[in-house]
Design a protein around this nucleic acid. Structure first.
Lengths: 419, 419
DNA sequence: TTGTTTTATTTCGGCGTCCAAAAAAATGTT
DNA sequence: AACATTTTTTTGGACGCCGAAATAAAACAA
């Protein structure tokens, strides 16, 4: 309750309402929009025709409509959807051994992809931004989309991002700290850019795919090379005061526990991440600093196979991981009581090995009343959800910050009238 | 972004905006309202005169205005404030050995108080609601305020409250579970009633007293007989999906740690609460079930004195508490990175004994980057803040749910016109 | 005393958006 | 061809905001 209400707010809010319904349910007729938004048919007509005039929406071709099934009595509906040419967005996912780019149209459909293998780990604080900007330029050139058509770029990265400053404060993908990214891209390409945590982007993607299910209060834990978490609070992805994400992976489990990549001891990640499992299983000292190299998938598959065969060291490693994860979730539940916890990422392949220990830890760590209100689900989500989430977020931002306001030409027209 | 925008929303929002400015800054002139809300003078005139006609606000007497200091040039301002007779609210604070009631007017000024010593612990699930209802009746009778003038009652209680169901799911103040409160009060007195966690009400009170300071993302930890927490997320007190509060006190610190009142082992409360400190210091087994009796303040003062004298058992108890609290806060920071943590309650008397261990635990448990963004402050807040917070919350709710909508007479008039 | 200046508040007319009701459009049914 | 049905647009009225002008109420100045 901070903004005053006037006709401007009313227009923005209702335009946005209509666009949100479209993003969530896809192309629909005006009557349907009325049902979703609660607006009268008269208002839907007004708003939708303005959005069409602004080039943001478009009516579906009649041919398409005919394919919609048996025609009922009465005037047939005309379905409306986002105009793919309304805007483009770019998503960039940063890994330790390269970056992955995707270009999407105004409907969120991916027009082009690109993968660049580079040693991000050694890139300097300024060089990296330039590298990404160059890759984006190449991506756009290949798809013949001019820069000015790109309304926004989103960068997803493991670790702590400061979305206000547009920097990567700390990430396992970089040796150095405070890598500046957004400023370079905005400066070099003129494209507004946001840096965000990758697990948050998964949360964003889940909301986009099923608002019903993930729209309340939920936590998404991504297990893999590291451990990340995205929090959804009251239907919105939570970004802390500085725009940093929740750092569930670096929440302490036990004082003086195993050494973590972050330099502290006993973090959840130091039990649950790929490198931690390998370290336990191989009998290395838990104070041995983890390697910063990427871990090949086959190493993890081998470890899982060993555990399934009953190899004691491997079994013990997964037991440790389950206990740490369980107590970590127990503590999360004590603080937030989310109604849903989603476990995702390649690490969930080993859930059968982890689960019993996780459940036991939850029993020990949470009051029954709270435990019962939380549903824990395992979802086979890969890293592609990061890209989808980044695109979703970028488009929603464009909807809110640009499309909801009305056409630029309107302000132009006003000026013409005055002059 | 769920509600459609129409002129009704505009009216509600702007009325609320104006009332919020008044609640926060107290009586003010119309020009000032314009500055706070961003509304034009013309609109302020319209809105304020309607609120006055509705009996919600009133103009201050001219005499009062004169006392405001040296008169400047120009037409003098007429200050406006809430009409004390606009509505009343009742706040009830439940303790283990009695309940405390307060009646406030439409400005939040307390008109009457009442304390009733009763063994709440033994009250049954239905008897307790009746007891509270009777006490409220007596309170109102004493102040000569009729029931129908009370727009809302708020019940603050330790432990897990379900504000949706209006019950106390679990509380150390009761032997039994699922104590129904709101339904009885609403049924017997016809006063809408909400049950809430006491630490949440402290958070509510802090927001009311200094929105600037506590309005962002903050955590309030209340230390005393138990350990509670209220979370403020984006300026709003966080109530979980069921309306339950955060249960920081029952977040696990160490597996197999000392036995807690909740029946689990190793909760933060089992290290930090009064009974826990006494148990450590007295050398009792940590698996000894804690007594459910109230602990006299002098026992705690004696323990503090012993620790200050250097008594090893007492010193060790506070060291344990500091470490558990520190790691607890470290885990909280990893999940939410609040920009402020407020330590409050009688337990903070011992902060000099606790602090060094708390800081050490924080160093071990949180990445530096995050630790630096959090300010930890100790505020000498007593239980009276619970009452203030409960009143604040009730009034804000009345503002939003009743006053913002406009006069009932209006709907009446519409009906008359139609008939 | 009387006019001038200053600041606060109200009045007035216009604008934008919503809505209900009626009209128009587009198709199926008889 | 007339009627039924459903969707969409048009029309006229209401509400709430705003800018500009008018009014109100005081201090100050002549």
């Amino acid at each position: 309750m901070r903004e005053k209400a006037d006709s401007d707010l009313v227009r923005r809010q209702n335009r946005l309402l209509l666009m949100e319904a479209l993003r969530q349910h896809g192309a629909m007729a005006r009557v349907e929009m009325g049902r979703h938004t609660g607006l009268s048919p008269a208002s839907i007509t007004t708003i939708s025709s303005q959005l069409i005039a602004d080039g943001i929406l478009e009516e579906a071709h009649a041919a398409h409509a005919a394919a919609e099934g048996p025609q009922r009595r009465g005037r047939p509906v005309t379905r409306i959807d986002f105009n793919p040419r309304s805007a483009n967005v770019v998503a960039v996912k940063v890994s330790i051994d390269g970056i992955e780019l995707a270009l999407a149209d105004g409907r969120g459909a991916i027009l082009a992809r690109r993968t660049a293998r580079t040693a991000t780990y050694d890139a300097g604080p300024l060089a990296f931004g330039k590298l990404v900007a160059d890759e984006i330029t190449t991506l756009l050139a290949g798809a013949r989309v001019p820069k000015r058509r790109v309304a926004r770029a989103g960068i997803a990265v493991q670790g702590v991002a400061d979305s206000q400053a547009g920097t990567v404060v700390w990430s396992p993908a970089f040796r150095e700290r405070n890598i500046s990214v957004a400023a370079t891209i905005e400066g070099q390409l003129g494209i507004p850019c946001r840096v965000a945590n990758d697990a948050n982007m998964i949360a964003e993607g889940l909301i986009g795919s099923d608002r019903q299910r993930y729209g309340g209060t939920a936590a998404v834990v991504f297990m893999g090379y590291g451990v990340g978490m995205g929090l959804i609070i009251n239907g919105q992805v939570y970004h802390g005061p500085t725009g940093a994400a929740a750092e569930f992976g670096h929440m302490n489990h036990l004082p003086d526990g195993p050494l973590c990549r972050c330099g502290r001891r006993g973090c959840v990640e130091a039990y649950v991440a790929d490198y931690s499992l390998l370290r336990w299983a191989s009998g290395h000292a838990v104070t041995q600093p983890p390697s910063s190299n990427a871990i090949p998938q086959q190493d993890m598959l081998a470890l899982e196979a060993a555990a399934h065969r009953g190899d004691p060291a491997a079994v013990a490693a997964y037991a440790k991981a389950g206990e740490a994860l369980g107590f970590g979730l127990a503590r999360l539940i004590a603080i937030l009581t989310p109604s849903r916890i989603v476990l995702a990422g390649p690490g969930t392949r080993a859930m059968p090995l982890i689960r019993p220990h996780l459940e036991r830890a939850l029993e020990q760590g949470v009051v029954d009343e709270l435990r019962r209100t939380v549903e824990i689900e395992v979802v086979p989500i890969g890293t592609d959800m990061i890209v989808k989430g980044t695109i979703d977020r970028a488009l929603r931002h464009v909807d809110r910050e640009i499309f909801a306001h009305g056409p630029l030409t309107k302000r132009g027209r006003e000026l013409e009238t005055v002059a």
